[in-house]
């Protein structure tokens, strides 16, 4: 099942970059259509609250 990969090989690359913005810049430098997502560490919940949430969700 490689249709989607073969389709990618025939398509113009359109990229989403998540994390290090250097890779966004190097894609831009190559003339690639790219959007950048700034990644933020998810807030860490107090362990106790996490347990309560787990039990009710």
């Amino acid at each position: 099942m490689t249709e989607k990969i073969l389709k990618l090989f025939k398509s113009e690359i359109k990229a989403i970059n998540i994390g290090i913005d250097l890779f966004y810049k190097s894609l831009k430098q190559q003339g690639v259509r790219v959007v950048h997502v700034i990644w933020r560490r998810p807030p860490e919940l107090e362990k106790e609250i996490e347990e309560i949430l787990k039990s009710i969700l």
């Binding site: 990618l8 690359i13 359109k14 989403i16 970059n17 894609l27 959007v35 997502v37």
Partner: peptide
């Protein structure tokens, strides 16, 4: 939000921890 703008994105470069 990013994909709402680039709906036909076909590749993602991921470098999160």
């Amino acid at each position: 939000d990013a994909l709402a703008v680039l709906r036909d994105a076909n590749i993602a470069v991921v470098s999160v921890p």
